[in-house]
Design a protein around this nucleic acid. Structure first.
Length: 413
RNA sequence: GUGGCUGUAGCUCAGCUGGUUAGAGCACCAGAUUGUGGAUCUGGGGGUCGUGGGUUCAAAUCCCAUCAGCCACCCCA
């Protein structure tokens, strides 16, 4: 076993896995573009303060999962655990407030210091979509629709369930939170240790506890619906109506709570059972207060992030590699000609494989191994007559002139 | 961060209750053969048995630690 290994929780994406990875990203990019989302990018690290302010001091990500370090000049820097904070920071830094609404597509690596598991690594990739400057429910609907369409085109939508919830506006949320703290506070002695901790940090999370004792308490807990103000209730109804209109299936899950502090109103998660405990495949929500929190002008926002690795794992069949046309010289004198012809074909846009050495039989073996679609065989005697043999690995071979070679190969491009 | 399971060649694994030079299949390399490519034959390279200690006359095989992966919790993409 090699003693040289990658850092825990990181891994190499070799070509075969990379094809699946790229397929996910390219599908996301293409679908998002049809909805008007343009790609942008931000640095992989930001001042630590950006994440602390945006995600909330008590969130798990901030309290125990960040890769934070000090630079030579003493600045506190953090490798981004998610993309939204950086995008909002860029929105403020770049003075983009007068160009609203803005629609962004994003992809890149994220970093979280977590215990690795299947579908959970310390460096992982996300695709993201963000919509800034739209306060209407239609924005929520569009954002969810982009996600659903990407999942559909990847062929995984049917293996997911869209869970939907509302966290209300700040007023509703604060009211409910206060009631919950009081309720669970009266039952401290019955709460699990995890939930006691949640009571301090994020009491809403207790609602989603898997501890049996907690669940009994949760069953009798006050309902969020009773504390939503009219505006929040209507807002949620509009979002659901929009999804209905688009025939996007969802299940309202009143216990769905996002771990990041900045969410308001709509929260959603496309989850799957195919990936074990890491079921969230694409998740996000509305974050109307975030940009203001970071010091910008109050600007509504909504978006989601999806795990590229998780989606890759769900693909039933990874996209195949491109099948090249192989060029095989037979005899030493044909080799230089093979080099020239290969170069010419590549310039013309063909994917061409030319072995680096070996005799004819060895090179032909390679042709089979790389799954070439056709071979151009260059024999010395034929070359002297300006001819080459094109063998279709499936249908057989024929002799063509070098001048018409490209035309003959056009069908393989 | 907590608990459990696992760790032998590139891959999948075999190595019974500890005993001379650790094996197989696939893959890889070379040669042969096939009127000349995915078949077949022969040969070959490759493992400090995750790592580090310990027990023992003797450990891949027992004990401890450590690292990594997996599973669950936690959390989330």
């Amino acid at each position: 076993m090699a003693q040289v290994k990658s850092v825990r929780g990181t891994y190499d994406i070799l070509p075969e896995a990379m094809r699946a990875h790229r397929h996910v990203v390219e599908t996301g990019r293409a679908v998002a573009a049809r909805y008007g989302y343009e790609e942008m990018s931000t640095p992989v690290f930001e001042f630590t303060e950006i994440f602390k302010r945006s995600l909330g001091d008590t969130s798990d990500v901030v309290t125990k999962e960040m890769y934070t370090f000090e630079t030579r000049s003493g600045e506190q820097i953090t490798l981004r655990p998610e993309a939204t904070a950086g995008i909002c920071r860029a929105f403020i830094s770049g003075g983009l407030a007068n160009q609203l609404p803005l629609k962004f597509f994003y992809t890149g690596p994220m970093f979280r210091y977590e215990r690795p598991q299947k579908g959970r690594q310390r460096q992982f990739y996300q695709i993201d979509v963000e919509l800034l400057g739209v306060a209407e429910p239609l924005g929520d609907v569009e954002i969810i629709a982009v996600g659903a369409q990407i999942l559909r085109e990847l062929g995984v939508l049917e293996h997911t369930v869209l869970e939907l919830n509302t966290l209300g506006d700040p007023e509703s949320r604060q009211a409910y939170r206060a009631v919950l703290v009081e309720y669970f506070g009266d039952h401290r002695d019955k709460l699990s240790p995890d939930s006691l901790d949640r009571l301090e940090r994020n009491p809403l999370r207790i609602l989603d506890s898997k501890d049996e004792g907690d669940r009994a308490l949760v069953a009798a807990a006050p309902l969020f619906g009773d504390y939503l103000n009219d505006f929040s209730t209507e807002y949620f109804a509009s979002v659901k109506a929009g999804l209905d209109a688009l025939e996007i299936d969802y299940e309202v899950n009143s216990r769905l709570v996002r771990g990041l502090d900045y969410y308001t109103h709509t929260a959603f998660e496309f989850t799957t059972r195919k990936l074990g405990a890491q079921g969230a495949v694409l998740a996000g929500g509305r974050y109307d207060g975030l940009i203001e929190t970071l010091g910008g002008r109050a600007t509504p926002g909504i978006g989601w992030a999806a795990g590229v690795e998780r989606l890759s794992m769900m693909l039933s069949e990874p996209p195949p590699a491109a099948r090249p046309v192989a060029v095989v010289p037979d005899g030493e004198a044909a080799e230089r000609e093979a080099l020239r012809i290969t170069q010419r074909l590549r310039e013309e846009g063909f994917t061409v494989d030319l072995g680096f050495g070996g005799k004819y039989s060895k090179r032909m073996k390679r042709v089979g191994r790389i799954d070439a679609i056709a071979v151009v065989i260059l024999r010395e005697d034929a070359l002297a007559r300006g001819m080459a043999t094109v063998r279709d690995l499936k249908t057989g071979e024929e002799e063509v002139s070098l001048a018409s070679l490209s035309d003959r190969l056009a069908r393989y491009r």
